[in-house]
Write a protein that binds this DNA or RNA. Structure first.
Length: 446
DNA sequence: TACCGGCCGGTGAAGACCTG
DNA sequence: CAGGTCTTCACCGGCCGGTA
């Protein structure tokens, strides 16, 4: 059944609604009709018309008022934007999303939206920012630029997530949880904003309660849309194993609907790389938000700036160049996060400064790692293993080798990359890179 | 008093659009 | 092969009031 069949009835019985519906695109009108006929399982024209009218009345005001905006094609909307100097694309997309949610149709069934997206893509692909030198029709397009930006963002997220994983497992000895949090089914028919607000409120409450108890938790959270465009969370959370029970109880308290499928909702992380990849697979789409838990708010730009050797607020040039060299090795290394002061918890950040706060440091291995950071950063081993001896000495002093012989062989090769003057006596090491000015290049003159 | 949680303002991130 | 501007969104921390 399609709209034309019932239009006459609606026009006669509900002229007001008929007028409202005038501006709605015909594919939508047909979809409303088809959906309604299917739901009430009848083929009587009058009956269906009444149902459709009822549905329109039950629609929230803002959706009903925006039928015309929803129904504009991409070209029309561009024209409108040009005239009114406002940005409407996103607004229209959001309206259509809510409309789909009320009507309970999937985005891939929404032909109008699909066409809109295709038009937009086409427009981006044909806008050439810079032409090829050889040909007139090809070049660097707006679409290429957008893709590139997305790849860059993906890379940053992925790198930070790997470093964070390394830090939590190997430095803090925390264990990883993988959470998938969904809303109960009654939220699948409300507006997108409502669902979003609800799920984010619950998650905020969880974090606040953990914070209130001073439970350090780090990780990455990703908001994704389900098939029916209800948001849900994928979260990698790293916590102290001894607090796991409490954390789980808090989570289940906020998301009681996950009680039944508890073993799906909360899993241990075995393969972090896979897990990160899974979380980030859709990160290019709109309304996918990736954020890091327990890291500074500006961690993304911080990381990017350091990676490209640019200044960033409180980071000294020294720190930046050191961290950058660590990043260039392309392996997950949680100490990078310490070096760029990337944690929102100052106690962790202070580990890379001269007077570290040892709150989270429990064993000698961790103290050793802090020493190692100091060796990289200041060229000094602080003897944090045995504070009675109070030896802060430059690395190249020979007595260090004696005092720290327990682990010295372990770090020597690493230290040498940045530090001169280590005596090779008795210890195995090799020179990976020599410091020095590169020879002047000749081609500069030409 | 211990513990929550709603509200709000500031701020960084992301989206949208434009331009040779 | 970018880069600028403007707008909107999400999030965090702090304030504060409610409740056992």
């Amino acid at each position: 059944m399609n709209y034309e069949q019932i239009e006459i009835v609606i026009r006669q019985n509900h002229p007001r609604i008929w007028q409202d519906l005038l501006s709605l695109h015909y594919t939508y009108k047909n979809q409303i009709t088809a959906k309604t006929a299917e739901n009430c399982a009848c083929h009587d024209v009058h009956e269906v018309a009444e149902q459709v009218a009822g549905w329109v009345i039950s629609c929230p005001e803002d959706v009903r008022d925006s039928f015309s905006l929803m129904s504009m094609t991409y070209d029309e909307i561009k024209e409108r934007q040009r005239i009114t100097q406002t940005k409407l694309t996103r607004k229209a997309n959001l309206l259509r999303r809510n409309f789909r949610r009320y009507l309970n149709i999937r985005p891939d069934q929404d032909q109008f939206q699909q066409q809109f997206n295709r038009d937009k893509l086409e427009s981006e692909k044909t806008y050439i920012v810079r032409y090829d030198s050889k040909s007139d029709n090809t070049g660097w397009t707006a679409h290429d630029a957008k893709k590139r930006e997305q790849r860059k963002r993906y890379r940053i997220n992925h790198d930070i997530a790997e470093h964070l994983d390394d830090f939590c497992l190997n430095f803090l000895n925390y264990s990883g949880l993988f959470l998938s949090l969904t809303l109960p089914s009654e939220y699948h028919g409300c507006s997108y904003e409502e669902a979003k607000e609800e799920i984010s409120r619950r998650w905020t409450n969880i974090r606040r309660r953990l914070k209130y108890r001073n439970i350090l938790h780090l990780g990455m959270s990703v908001i994704e849309l389900q098939k029916d465009e209800t948001p849900h969370y994928h979260i990698q959370l790293y916590i102290n194993p001894s607090e796991r029970e409490y954390v789980e109880s808090v989570i289940l308290h906020e998301f009681p609907n996950e009680q039944g499928r508890q073993y799906n909702a909360i899993q241990s992380i075995w393969d972090a790389i896979n897990c990160i990849g899974y979380c980030l697979k859709d990160s290019g789409k709109t309304d996918n938000y990736v954020s890091f838990i327990g890291l500074t708010k500006d961690i993304k730009s911080r990381y990017d700036n350091v990676y490209h050797n640019r200044k960033h607020k409180d980071l000294s040039d020294w720190r930046i160049s050191k961290s950058r060299r660590m990043m260039k090795k392309n392996q997950s290394d949680g100490q990078i996060l310490l070096m760029i002061r990337g944690f929102s918890d100052d106690k962790l950040n202070s580990l890379s400064s001269r007077h570290p706060d040892m709150t989270y440091i429990r064993n000698d291995i961790q103290r050793l790692q802090v020493s190692y950071i100091h060796a990289l950063h200041f060229g000094v081993f602080n003897n944090v293993c045995n504070s009675n001896e109070q030896i802060d000495t430059r690395c190249h002093a020979i007595k260090i080798t004696a005092v720290f012989s327990r682990f010295y062989t372990f770090v020597t090769t690493q230290v040498y990359v940045y530090q001169e003057g280590i005596l090779p006596v008795c210890y195995f090491w090799e020179c990976e890179k020599s410091r020095g000015q590169p020879p002047p290049s000749k081609k500069e003159k030409a």
